[in-house]
């Protein structure tokens, strides 16, 4: 099969061609198809071309109104920023607590039976497929506006991701050491502490810190639907057109995102 395209050059004699005719046609039609879809998509969007034409100007205008950032406002966002970080930490911690049992259910070597396995897989894919902002909407309905709804939204959204990666780590466990530990007369729990935990610990730490990094970003926006954090302040300032304060907030967000990314990368580098 694979040799077909390799030797096709022989048919075309001395002339060298990168692709044979059939491949060329396929490529041509694929490209054409993509272009047609694009054109159709653009047309059917009913975009107001007045807006499009003025967009660059508007964006520039926005930028000039943002600069310089409002320095005095900085003191007012310390609280919301801390809340944002708190939400990300608590959300991640809660996610891990909830993800552990799910991970053991969704790992084929630790799940009790086929039904629990399917149940685990279902939780993993369902929580992952619903965006954090939708979870935030739901939890704001339940718990009212505030950080609690945010923590829960972040936690629930993270369960699937965390459980999936942890489950994969559990599936890769080497049975040998685990057996060897139980052969010494250790109890199930001791076997767990000495045989299983050391094997999944690196994956555990890197998954947790990686997810925390993602969650810091997520906790900056759940405020748009009232679930706490810096997003609330950001939305308010945008609605009142206080662009210099908006820039202050954006810079602050950039700061915490970069710092959390650095911390998370450092921690992941440490475990190996």
């Amino acid at each position: 099969m694979a040799s077909k395209s390799e030797f096709s050059g022989a048919d075309s004699g001395a002339e060298w061609e990168r692709f044979d005719t059939r491949q060329r046609l396929i490529r041509y039609f694929l490209t054409l198809g993509v272009l047609v879809i694009l054109a159709a998509a653009w047309r059917s969007m009913d975009i107001n071309y007045g807006y499009v034409a003025s967009a660059p100007n508007e964006v520039m205008d926005l930028l000039t109104r943002m600069y310089p950032p409002n320095v005095i406002y900085t003191s007012e966002i310390v609280g919301p920023l801390l809340e944002t970080i708190n939400i990300s930490i608590l959300g991640t911690a809660l996610a891990i607590v909830m993800a552990l049992p799910v991970a053991f259910l969704s790992a084929s070597n630790t799940t009790p039976n086929r039904w629990t396995y399917l149940f685990g897989k279902f939780i993993v894919s369902f929580t992952r497929s619903v965006n954090v902002i939708i979870w935030a909407l739901i939890f704001v309905v339940l718990f009212g506006p505030g950080a609690l709804a945010g923590v829960l939204a972040i936690a629930v959204r993270s369960v699937g991701f965390t459980a999936k990666l942890l489950g994969e780590a559990i599936e890769e466990i080497d049975r040998g050491p685990v057996e060897a530990i139980s052969a010494t007369g250790a109890s199930t729990f001791q076997m767990f502490i000495y045989g299983i935990i050391p094997q999944i610990k690196p994956a555990f730490i890197s998954v947790a810190t990686f997810r925390w990094d993602i969650n810091v970003r997520a906790s900056t926006i759940i405020g748009f639907v009232g679930a706490g954090g810096i997003g609330v302040a950001l939305q308010t300032n945008i609605n009142y057109f206080k662009w210099d304060a908006v820039l202050t907030i954006l810079i602050a967000i950039l700061g915490i995102v970069l710092v959390s990314e650095g911390i998370s990368a450092y921690l992941r580098g440490k475990v190996s």
Binding site: M45, I47, Y51, V52, S54, A55, E58, V59, L62, F241
Partner: peptide, 8 residues
């Protein structure tokens, strides 16, 4: 805010 509500 820059280009108005909508898909753009």
């Amino acid at each position: 805010k820059a280009v108005g509500f909508g898909p753009l």
